[in-house]
């Protein structure tokens, strides 16, 4: 079976410099992948490149085996759901209207939302525990409430591939698990999920694989037991890492300040 999403020798960046260099990785169906790395390591750029926002300078991104650059925009938009980091609404907008925007690739240029559109909006609001916020303006919400509505917008498009930039940012523990469950559900339905995070507990609970980015290059990639290891994590973050084996191949990680060597 062809993988939903793959990057081959990918390089991407802004202006004169490449942020990413030679990133190769296949994101398989049924797998949740956590992107880990320091600030500026290229996590967001990788997600943007995979979403087709930042063009690949070298290498190829394949969506369902076909080069992303050759796939019609609308078709790609139906398959890929992208959550940006730190969104500020440009104009006042109600949560339900914003979530409906996630249906854009499925709608015609004119005409009211279909029953299917409406059902998807309600279902994704419910999944993100945001039904009570449906008639609230985004500007009047707390950071965590807004994050859940923005996630519901991505889920409403029913994409096969989820590309989420820090989906659990600003969330309280209960809603963090809600998001982890939602990612798992998409993977179990045969989708591929890639998300970035700085919370290692979210990575170890929510992901199957990890991709460690350092200076725009892949330091390591693979199942958690191979990637969430003490030497790799302390090399990645420059801090002391303590990894204990956990149930179901899910290591428990705790970090401490770098020790003088």
């Amino acid at each position: 079976m062809t993988a939903p999403l793959a990057a081959e020798a990918l390089a991407a960046g802004y202006g004169a410099c490449d942020v990413l260099a030679n990133v190769t990785r296949t994101f398989d169906a049924g797998r949740v992948t956590a992107l880990l790395g320091e600030n500026g390591a290229g996590k967001s750029t990788l997600l943007k490149a995979l979403a087709g926002i930042v063009p690949a300078r070298r290498g190829t991104i394949r969506l369902g085996g076909r080069p992303l650059s050759g796939i019609p925009r609308r078709e790609a938009a139906r398959a890929l759901g992208y959550l940006p980091q730190g969104f500020e609404p440009l104009f006042p907008i109600l949560a339900r209207d914003l979530v409906l925007l996630g249906r854009t690739p499925w709608r015609t240029a004119f005409g009211a939302p279909s029953a299917r559109d409406r059902a998807a909006v309600e279902a994704s609001l419910a999944e993100m525990d945001a039904l009570a916020l449906a008639e609230t303006d985004l500007g009047a919400m707390s950071g965590g409430e807004r994050q859940r509505v923005l996630l519901a917008r991505v889920l409403a498009g029913e994409p096969e591939v989820l590309l989420l930039d820090e989906p659990t940012a600003n969330l309280d523990p209960r809603h963090r698990f809600l998001v982890i469950d939602a990612m798992r559900r998409r993977a179990d339905q045969g989708g591929a999920v890639v998300f970035s995070t700085h919370e290692l507990d979210v990575a170890s609970t929510g992901a199957d694989d990890a991709l460690l980015l350092s200076g725009g290059r892949v330091l390591a990639a693979g199942p958690l037991v191979e990637t969430l290891t003490e030497p790799l994590l302390s090399a990645l973050f420059g801090v002391a890492a303590c990894v204990a084996p956990g149930a179901g191949g899910r290591p428990t990680v705790s970090l401490g300040p770098a020790r003088a060597r």
Partner: peptide, 23 residues
């Protein structure tokens, strides 16, 4: 008028609008 849907999507910013299939 045919751009109304694109304008709606642009509320999310240009990058996100692009990922929704908007040219």
């Amino acid at each position: 008028l045919p751009l109304a849907r694109a304008f709606d999507a642009l509320t999310l910013g240009e990058e996100t609008a692009a990922t929704l299939g908007i040219r």
